[in-house]
Structures are given as structure tokens and as C-alpha cells.
Design a protein around this nucleic acid. Structure first.
Lengths: 220, 220
DNA sequence: ACTCTGACTGAACATTCGTTCATTTTATTC
DNA sequence: GAATAAAATGAACGAATGTTCAGTCAGAGT
């Protein structure tokens, strides 16, 4: 039934994706000629255009792979953690760790914003998914009485902002290490939670561990 | 003494810069051929290369103009405001309003990250200036006893992150209006200040005005 | 009025790029 | 093992791009 053929075709598609991933992350999407992807793969020019409609297509597929990984990871995490405060902070750890595991994809992700309308739409769709998801969780926390009544959208936006920024500083600017990237996001979330989460729920805040009793005393 | 000539030359340089500004912001730097800038200006090809070394050169000059405006505005603001809390929040309003006044420049700024090493360095230099400046002010506030002892760098990074993000959402994604962009940054700074600024200094926090007494009661 | 510096011009250059398609090769089926 | 359908090939195409440079021209100095 042509199984062998199908497998080899999948392998070729995968190989092309990997070559594009490597080259895009090394030189940037715009500075990578399709020809180089093709040469690196070892296949012919036509083969590339058999598996992908055009250059932009392969970029989109790579980005969507990253987004899918993030969505899957978050869903996994939510399946076995229901504590609201932990979710508020740790969900972002889960997300940032997906970026950390995918250095090349993260590099591409950080460098394609504003490339063209098509790619921007792709990025925006994911942003919207993130904002919607984060907002709903904060809203639930407020209704639940765990969170203070603060403006939701700015917090959701700020969370997305710090994630994007941290990834950029890690993978493009190379100013911080992978661990510092995770720390930056987490410690920011903890800062945010000081204002958001009601005091009684803050006992297990790691910031309190770090900065000790003086902090609690000052607050009350 | 060739004054007339000098003036006309400056005018030509300026015209070319304006054309580049418009086209870069409309179609993106990478999608704007030098020829189009030249055609729009009405001058000859060689004239462009008389005033600018190459295409990247004109982009860099535009970016540096934006950065200079920001630095100048902040210096002006600092000259007549010495209150630490006000500075902490309002400095960012001053900055974001420079972006708001320069829509085209902001568009370019938001879309060139990761273009190439040269441009990245240019962006990084400004980031570093911002981080250094913001850190020093928080540090001063802590030493002064106005701010709590929180980790400085993550706060500085987060501030930069929200500014970049807000500009992007305004001018590239077009998800928020100019006013919403300013609000996003300011309300974020106020959220941050809840955790950072000691309570007695928080009386004039606008968030308190918005969310009223209940908020203060919950805190204490 | 004449000279001459240097600003200005734009056709031409030398690449480079994304994509196509006529042809060849390969795997599968009968 | 021949027929067939689909995959693979890569030379060639056409359009674009950043930049150059030999020649032109305007205006400042004398």
C-alpha cells in the first residue's frame, strides 16, 4: 500500500523542516534563501515545493509547532493542578520552559514580529489565545474571592509582555541565560501576585521566603 | 559662503529621511526598496548615497532620532520633578508619550528587532541605557527608604518589557489605541508600585482612587 | 564673465532570490 | 516484469535589489 513511500516522504518533510529551523534561527528568516534550506537537506528544489507551498509556509508551520507545544503543555499542567495561586504563577513557568526547550524556535519567534501581515496574524492569534486564557483565570480568581479586584487585561497583557521580552533577551540579545529567563518571568509573576493575591493566600509566596518577615510586617 | 547650498543640502537629507520614515513604517524596512525612497523623494539615486552610506544607515539614523527624543524628554522631566514615586510612574508616561507622538518611528522600532546584528546592537544599546537608568532610580528609592527591598533588575526589565509590548500592540498589531497604550503602561506601573512602594507613600496612587477604600482595607 | 568644485543624475551592473516545469527516477501494482 | 502513477530533480526564468560611476550641471568664488 505504499507504506514505505509514505514514511520516506514524512522523513523528507521533517528533514526540510529541521534544516529550515536551523538556518532560520542562525541567520534569520529573511536572510535565509530557500536554496540554502534545499542544499542543506540534500534534496532537489522541486522537493521543497512539493512539501511546502512557499517559503512563508514553512515558517508558519514551524511557529505553529511551537504554539501547539505550549498549548499542550499548559493543558497537561492544568489537568493535575487546581490551586489558583499556583496556577497563576506556575502556568507561566510551564510556558517559559517550552521556549527554553526550543531554543531555535524561540529565536525565530522573537525575530519575525512585523515581518508581514500574514506572519503578524499568526502571532496575534496566539497572543489572543494567551490573553483570553490568562484573563479568564484571573477573572475566576476574582469571582472566587482569591484575587483582589484589579483591572484584568493590563495584568494579562503584562504577563504576555514579560514572557516575550524574556525570550528575546535570552535568545536574541543573549543577555541572560536560560535559567535567568525562567527566573525573570517567575519573579515577575510573584511581584504581580503581591498586588493581586489576597494576603492570606500569600503565605507560600516564594518572595516571602526570600525577603523574610520584614516584608510581611511592612505590608500589614 | 555657500549658505544657500548648505541649507538646500540639509533639506534634501531631511526629505530623504522623511520618505524613508514613511515607507519603512508602511511596508517595513525589509520590504522597502531603496529605489522607492529615492522615487518618492524625487531626487536621483546617487543623491541618496551621497547623504547615507547604505540602506541600513538611514534606518539607524531614524532609530537614533527616536532614542534621542526619549532621552531628552526624560532629562527635561527630571529637571523639574524630584518626587521619587512620581518619577517611578510618570517617567514611563513621558517615555510612552514620545512613542505616541512618533507613530511611524514607533512602527519601525517595533518591527526591526532581530533584523541583523548591527540593528540589534543599536536596540540593545538603548535597552541598556534604559535598564541602567531605571535600576539606579529604584536602587536610590530603596536606599532612601521609600521603596521596599525587592529585586531591582526584574522590575527594570519588566518595565522595559511592558513599554515595548504596549508600543507593539498599538502600532503593529493595532489592537489598542494610543490612549490605551499609555493607560496600559501607567496602570502596570501602578500595579508594580503596590508591591514596591511603602504603604505610607501610596496614598496618591491612582489605583486607590479607582478602586477606593475597600482596597486599602484589604491591604492592611 | 569665467572657472571650477562638488552636488546631482540615472542607466547599468552584478547579484540574488523565490519559484516553475520538462524531464528523470523510483516505488507500487497487476 | 511491464505499466503506471507519483515523487524527485535541477537548470532556467524573470523579477527585484543594493550599489556604483562616468557624465552633467548649478552655483559659489574670483
Amino acid at each position: 500500500m505504499g507504506q514505505m513511500r509514505d514514511i520516506k516522504m514524512q522523513e523528507k518533510r521533517q528533514k526540510l523542516l529541521e534544516c529550515a529551523l536551523t538556518l532560520f534561527s542562525e541567520k534569520g528568516y529573511i536572510n535565509t534563501p530557500v536554496r540554502e534550506i534545499i542544499d542543506m537537506s540534500g534534496y532537489g528544489t522541486g522537493t521543497f515545493y512539493k512539501y511546502f507551498n512557499n517559503k512563508e509556509d514553512i515558517l508558519k508551520i514551524l511557529l505553529e509547532d511551537l504554539f501547539e507545544q505550549i498549548v499542550d503543555s499548559v493543558n497537561d499542567y492544568f489537568a493535575h493542578e487546581s490551586d489558583l495561586y499556583k496556577r497563576f504563577v506556575e502556568t507561566k513557568r510551564v510556558i517559559i520552559e517550552v521556549y527554553a526547550r526550543n531554543e531555535k524556535l524561540s529565536d525565530i519567534y522573537s525575530r519575525v514580529a512585523g515581518m508581514n501581515d500574514n506572519i503578524d496574524q499568526c502571532l496575534k492569534d496566539f497572543d489572543d489565545k494567551f490573553l483570553d486564557f490568562t484573563s479568564k483565570n484571573i477573572e475566576y480568581g476574582i469571582k472566587n474571592g482569591s484575587f483582589r479586584t484589579l483591572p484584568i487585561l493590563p495584568i494579562a497583557h503584562a504577563t504576555l509582555a514579560i514572557i516575550k521580552y524574556a525570550v528575546y533577551k535570552w535568545v536574541v540579545a543573549k543577555e541572560i541565560s536560560k535559567e535567568e529567563m525562567v527566573d525573570l518571568v517567575i519573579s515577575f509573576m510573584q511581584c504581580l501576585s503581591i498586588g493581586l493575591v489576597k494576603k492570606k493566600l500569600l503565605e507560600n509566596n516564594l518572595l516571602l521566603e526570600q525577603y523574610g518577615e520584614a516584608f510581611i510586617e511592612e505590608r500589614s
